[in-house]
Design a binder for these strands. Structure first.
Lengths: 203, 203
DNA sequence: CTTAAGTTACACTGATAAGTGTATTTTAAG
DNA sequence: CTTAAAATACACTTATCAGTGTAACTTAAG
């Protein structure tokens, strides 16, 4: 006889959104639960009815980030498109992650939480790492197609991601977005580097 | 007639060291000034006589880090040594930065402080960036020597650092050191990539 | 309308912590 | 030894904040 149960997902989302916005603006440590409740036009008690603790909030925020980040994760292999154009498009889609101030802000918050709350560190593997996965099948297809020579697609994907993340993912977390013109120049060079190794097939 | 002035640098260093150790162990936010003073066997008042605030302490710690990091910054070009061996040695010296748990801890603390205290962000440029400088003169010499084709040594140095930092510098800050065997495999691949582009001279 | 789920207001606990003021004691330079 | 610099003990102010308890109020489902 489960009686009445109301849909409270609206409040739930509003509270979570308010928390994320506040974390981005003031940082995790400096945001109080009162602030969050106020921002969501809710009472603190309601906030605690939805989320057991402040940490539960950042956990939820992290889940949202992961969901967002895996959007547009895949790169579709197109046999008729130049290899470098496809790689370039893939790189662009990843670079957007740290070009959007909102997403960048959220990533900073999460990064900071990982660093100062070692209990969360076990989740840290997911941060940034799964971002290269989408490239693996693409590399395998390009390899089968004879347009690249990639004996180990997993390794090559990690190389590609290391190269890009070392400029377009990690540094912006500390310093803010990379400048457009500079970014393009580096991106072009990175792709040349990648193709120099995997296009002609050196041992 | 400046009278007596005693050398208090001993206490000063002890306090700073205690602060750094505590920051590494508990994190910046969770370390109290009382803890630091206690750890240095000093009174809190003395701590405040040496350092105006908690932030002054992290600033000092950052200066120490910069001093340490620029040690062994240079790579000496040797015309008789194989190119890849020299690059490998350079890479090793940089990789050590994040292999030492103590240094890694300090970098995490500093990174976290940068992220959660935007006032310090203007200093963030120095974090990680100057690390590739030492490579530029080496590349120029190798270029003059005809063993590499590097039209733009600054660009190539940035590429090299991006490639390595994307695996050996940034991720360890979040997840801890890279596993030895895996690290060697990736390092080798990175050097092959670098040489594929800059050894034979593609446009 | 009835009623229980959900929300609010608000007071409160318990704890931590940055930074200061000051009188007193220790230490080392001259 | 003398004396001023440096260190200490310690009480104190001011503030913040996570999380709880509870009684009253609002809302929507049946």
């Amino acid at each position: 006889m489960a009686r009445k149960k109301r849909d409270t997902s609206g409040k739930h989302q509003a509270l979570l959104k308010a928390a994320i916005d506040a974390f981005i603006e003031f940082g995790f440590e400096k945001t109080s639960m009162d602030q969050i409740a106020g921002r969501a036009n809710a009472s603190k008690r309601t906030l605690y009815n939805h989320f057991a603790s402040k940490e539960a909030l950042i956990e939820e925020a992290f889940k949202m980030f992961l969901a967002d980040a895996s959007q547009g994760k895949n790169i579709d292999y197109d046999p008729d498109q130049p290899i470098e154009d496809q790689l370039s498009a893939f790189a662009d889609s990843k670079m957007q992650l740290t070009q959007d101030p909102k997403q960048l802000g959220l990533m900073r918050v999460i990064l900071s939480a990982f660093i100062s709350h070692p209990q969360m560190a076990h989740r840290a593997v997911l941060f940034s790492d799964s971002l290269d996965d989408g490239l693996i099948p693409w590399l395998q297809k390009a390899n089968q197609d004879g347009r690249l020579t990639v004996p180990d697609a997993t390794l090559a994907a990690r190389v590609f991601w290391s190269l890009f993340a070392g400029t377009f993912f990690w540094p912006p977390l500390v310093r803010g977005p990379v400048k457009k013109a500079e970014g393009q120049k580096l991106k072009t060079e990175f792709i040349k580097l990648f193709l120099a190794r995997y296009q002609e097939g050196s041992g």
